[in-house]
């Protein structure tokens, strides 16, 4: 395996990881406050559709991006309303949200854009100086803007969750909402904020596909990526840095299996395609001894005045 191949696989892995990063970080924040949203894939699809539609009609990629974040936020609000205000079972609300997003994005695509089209999305942006560094430059610093932002998101999320009063509140609400409530934290408001923020990030995850990496939209563009993003939250044990590591691992193995096939190495394609899923499980199983601090109130209803 020559250097150029390794560089190719790693830089491929980074591109593939981008949508997962946005969605999984968003989901991490929501889950830390105690809300599981299984509907990430549906929200991503709505974000992808809206970003593409707006970019196509206005010619502005930035407007498309903002619209995707906004649409994601609206879907986050819907999820928050149903799971926080109406205290519905979170798992099933998420499945409902997924079905709704999948159907609505396909329907809107059918009546507004109709046929598959392509646009010129965010161009690759070589970072001056850094992109010249051999190997590292090629792997990390020759991507489009949304890839860089996805990476910047990791330290931001870490800081937000660990070093700010807001982060403390989120964790408190997720660990012990009754105690947080008695200390005067508005549990519902914190959860509304986190789930809406999570929705916005899922929307951007969709946009990163439709107007930056793939530059097109069609029915079910995400092909189940949102579910992988949810899985990665568990891989990372609700820690942004480990979620990031999981996304990179999954995507890099995926890039590797593509390369195996392209290079004509004699592996049945279906077996190659299984690799990222198997490796992710095995790596997590190998870390069985790790400490996991699951938010104790995850997937549980909170009702004031109850024990």
């Amino acid at each position: 395996m020559s250097w150029s191949i390794i560089i190719g696989i790693l830089s491929s892995g980074i591109r593939l990881a981008t949508p997962y990063l946005y969605a999984a970080v968003g989901e991490t924040i929501g889950q830390l406050s105690g809300v599981v949203n299984l509907g990430v894939d549906g929200v991503m699809l709505m974000g992808a559709y809206v970003a593409f539609f707006v970019a196509l009609r206005t010619g502005s990629l930035s407007l498309g991006l903002i619209a995707a974040a906004g649409m994601g936020g609206v879907f986050g609000l819907i999820m928050a309303f149903i799971s926080v205000t109406l205290k519905a079972e979170q798992g099933i609300s998420g499945i409902g949200l997924y079905l709704f997003g999948l159907g609505l994005s396909t329907f809107l695509f059918g009546i507004t854009i109709r046929n598959v089209q392509t646009i010129d999305g965010f161009p690759d942006l070589a970072i001056p100086g850094l992109s010249r560094i051999p190997v590292i430059g090629e792997i990390f610093f020759q991507h489009n803007i949304l890839v860089y932002v996805a990476f910047a998101l990791i330290p931001i999320a870490w800081f937000l969750l660990n070093k700010t009063p807001f982060g403390l509140k989120v964790r408190a609400v997720g660990q012990n909402p009754e105690a947080a409530d008695s200390l005067g934290v508005n549990v519902a408001r914190v959860r509304y904020l986190t789930v809406t923020l999570g929705g916005m990030l899922s929307g951007v995850a969709g946009a990163s596909l439709s107007i930056a990496l793939l530059n097109t939209f069609q029915q079910n563009l995400t092909n189940g990526m949102g579910f992988i993003a949810v899985a990665l939250v568990y891989f990372g044990g609700w820690r942004p840095v480990l979620v990031f590591a999981g996304a990179l691992l999954f995507s890099t193995v995926n890039a590797l299996q593509i390369w195996l096939q392209v290079a004509g190495i004699n592996v049945p394609s279906d077996v190659a395609l299984m690799l990222p899923y198997i490796v992710t499980i095995l790596v997590l199983a190998a870390m069985a001894k790790r400490r996991v601090n699951a938010p104790a109130a995850l997937n549980k209803r909170f009702e004031r005045g109850e024990s």
Partner: peptide, 25 residues
């Protein structure tokens, strides 16, 4: 001729990355 199967009729993302890898190769 390098042939790659993505295992899906709808995985746009994988088909894009496969094309990139092929061009790189």
């Amino acid at each position: 001729v390098s042939v790659t199967w993505t295992g899906s009729y709808s995985d746009v993302s994988l088909s894009a990355e496969t094309a990139r890898t092929m061009i790189k190769a």
